[in-house]
Design a binder for these strands. Structure first.
Lengths: 188, 188
DNA sequence: TCAAGTCTGTACCGAACAGTACAGACGGTT
DNA sequence: AACCGTCTGTACTGTTCGGTACAGACTTGA
């Protein structure tokens, strides 16, 4: 019977796609099965605890990506300006190529809220803290850096909502660009 | 059998609460029934087309509230500064007393995305346009006004995400306050 | 060649789902 | 007091859900 053999990370990637399009609740096993070609058997082989495991794996993968491509570079930045420009570039490309959906933001709604509350909080605090660190490296006083970092992450997340509402990337890209400008602006 | 008699707007209010807490998909009829005390019979009496009607009614009520309390005042403002301060105040109070959830933003996720795409787009464009109008009244050039309006709405919506992620209102209130400052700042 | 372990398709389970049918209860009108 | 339209509780439908069981197919190593 067994035909196509996949490894776990392929399945996680496919799951992420389904969850972005349909949401965690509505991403039913039948939909996953027909959308990804991965059967029930394989799914429960890779994720013995079912949908909770699947959600956890997807979030972990997203978290790893951001840690690697966004947070760590920001923390280790020697040139704050370049690091922030890089963040804008990476974030814009990441979300425009992924249905304009941040799965961690989606996790702040509905019932699943409680299940992954810690992971969600960590994702956002890590982002804000890493960005604030880069801003301090760039010479901003700590409180100003913290405020700007929070505002920037909020602007990006809100930009994703507007992008989905408008069905267009331009608004989101404009928001990201202006957010970058505000981050790089000198203290007044 | 009939015991408690409710009118439609009571039911809509109760529905909004359930949808904010659980989401549209997960807000099942059984949950609605036991959470609101409204039985299946009444529900399908008020909303013959089931959950779609319920969602539409809830969104309409939210839309009416914003039109009345936020959009119209912004459009008719003679003193832009006061209108924007009023918006901040109203928005902060509205969302902090409603689970920090914007139902229109929630509608940009999952399957329901398509069903109410027009209503969602209108909500956000109305908000952005009304705010931009107030900013023009305050003396900002049209393009600058438009950019600031988009950025402000995005910041507020992103602020709600952070508020839910952190489980605290302070971050959201800080974002709203700084957003107001940026809206009121003179052109540079 | 063959045994062990890994992976996959399918049939199945009870539970929960949205929606329907309908009888009975209530409030207003006459 | 009788009536009618509005409202409500309950029993029921077919469907879909997440999850389980398990046999068969494939890979691997000896």
């Amino acid at each position: 019977m067994a035909r196509t053999v996949l490894d776990r990370s392929d399945v996680v990637r496919a799951l992420a796609g389904v969850f972005r399009k349909r949401g965690f609740e509505a991403g039913s096993l039948s939909v996953i099965q027909q959308q990804t070609g991965v059967g029930r058997g394989s799914l429960y082989h890779f994720f013995p605890n079912g949908k909770t495991d699947m959600a956890a794996a997807v979030l972990q993968q997203v978290s790893d990506w951001f840690e690697d491509r966004i947070f760590t570079p920001l923390r280790l930045a020697r040139n704050a300006g370049e690091a922030i420009e890089a963040m804008s570039r990476e974030v814009a490309e990441y979300f425009t190529s992924r249905e304009r959906v941040c799965l961690f933001a989606a996790m702040t709604l509905g019932e699943e809220q409680d299940t992954f509350a810690d992971e969600v909080r960590s994702y956002f605090t890590d982002w804000v803290d890493a960005l604030a660190a880069a801003l301090r490296t760039g010479g901003l006083p700590p409180l100003e850096a913290a405020d700007r970092a929070v505002d920037a992450v909020a602007a990006i997340q809100g930009g994703l909502i507007l992008a989905r509402a408008y069905g267009d990337d331009a608004t989101f890209l404009g928001i990201v660009a202006r957010t970058e400008q505000r981050l790089l602006a000198p203290t007044q």
